[in-house]
């Protein structure tokens, strides 16, 4: 009965238009970063010009970023910190998750919930006393302060996700390995670990992104510009008093976002699995 054109129009209005509007609203700031980063200053600060158009695109802001600021150092610091804290977190959360998923021991359940609670503790609750702890340990102003503290929010998340993951793997394989004379550690390393690889990958990718994005610890533990991470370096060193170098600020913001965006785009599925791990557990 319904004529086709009406059905198409209906789909157009109820799906395509809202999808486009959603995308524009969510992605506009990134477009804006990109446009600003290639605009010469003369066009940036011309109130009359149409701000959406770049007449003479330039890479001067990027050159400024790498030649006149410590941006390259910050990129390196962020990569090292994110890689090391991810590695530490995996080394700690794989065994913890396995123990909580497989073994029954007194206090085990309680420890499991304890880890879940620390997963919910926000960094902003701890940063002031933690600053003192970092000072006492002599870690202030070094990237080690971050390498050691980032796992505090990565390990709870990772263990929690991996408990669920290990539980989803049938016990039978490990049990028959034990029957065949394998030790429990061998069963963990040779049987459970390879099967849990997708879960471990999820945790790794998610941890790397969380470390890359962390802000408040990096802001308060490190004051030496050379040792800063990208998020802190860009916000604190590129803004001098009331002077905003918008071109290089946006270039820095864009370059600081690209690595996580790339990792994310390669591993969307793992990422969503990690994201919803807490939510779907129930």
């Amino acid at each position: 009965m319904t004529p086709r054109p009406v059905a198409i129009l209906d789909r157009f209005i109820s799906i395509y238009v809202p999808v486009v509007i959603t995308l524009v609203l969510l992605l506009f700031p990134f477009y804006w970063m990109a446009v600003t980063s290639v605009k010469p200053n003369a066009e940036l600060f011309d109130v009359k010009a149409n701000p959406f158009i770049v007449l003479r695109p330039t890479l001067e802001h990027y050159r400024y970023l790498f030649e006149r600021t410590l941006f390259a150092n910050w990129l390196l610091n962020t990569t090292v910190v994110a890689a090391l804290s991810t590695a530490i977190s995996l080394v700690l959360s794989v065994p913890a998750g396995y123990a909580l998923a497989r073994f029954r021991f007194p206090g085990g359940t309680l420890l499991g919930w304890g880890i879940f609670v620390t997963y919910l503790v926000p960094q902003t609750l701890l940063f002031l006393p933690l600053t003192q702890v970092i000072n006492w340990l002599g870690l202030a102003n070094t990237i080690w302060s971050l390498v050691l503290t980032y796992p505090t929010f990565l390990v709870p998340f990772g263990s929690w996700l991996l408990i669920g993951y290990f539980r989803s793997i049938p016990k039978d394989l490990e049990e028959s390995a034990l029957v065949d004379g394998a030790t429990r550690l061998q069963a963990l390393v040779r049987i459970a670990l390879p099967l849990a690889l997708p879960g471990i990958l999820s945790v790794g990718i998610f941890s790397f992104t969380l470390s890359w994005n962390e802000f408040i610890y990096a802001l308060v533990f490190i004051s030496d510009p050379v040792n800063k991470t990208v998020p802190v370096g860009v916000t604190s060193e590129l803004i001098r008093g009331d002077v905003f170098f918008w071109g290089s600020l946006m270039a820095g913001a864009l370059l600081g976002s690209v690595p996580v965006a790339l990792i994310y785009s390669f591993f969307v599925e793992y990422f969503v699995a990690g994201l919803t791990a807490g939510a779907v557990k129930g």
């Binding site: 999808v19 959603t22 995308l23 969510l26 992605l27 700031p29 990134f30 804006w32 970063m33 600003t36 992104t209 890359w212 994005n213 802000f215 990208v230 998020p231 802190v232 860009v234 916000t235 905003f244 918008w246 600020l249 946006m250 820095g252 913001a253 864009l254 600081g256 976002s257 996580v260 965006a261 994310y264 785009s265 969307v268 990422f271 969503v272």
Partner: peptide, 25 residues
């Protein structure tokens, strides 16, 4: 698939960096 991946970008990207874009906006 592309749209679904793109939608999550504001949440993936370091908050302070996207906030800088908003500061400029």
């Amino acid at each position: 698939r592309f749209v679904r991946a793109a939608v999550l970008l504001p949440w993936i990207v370091p908050t302070v960096l996207s906030a800088l874009a908003w500061l400029w906006m």
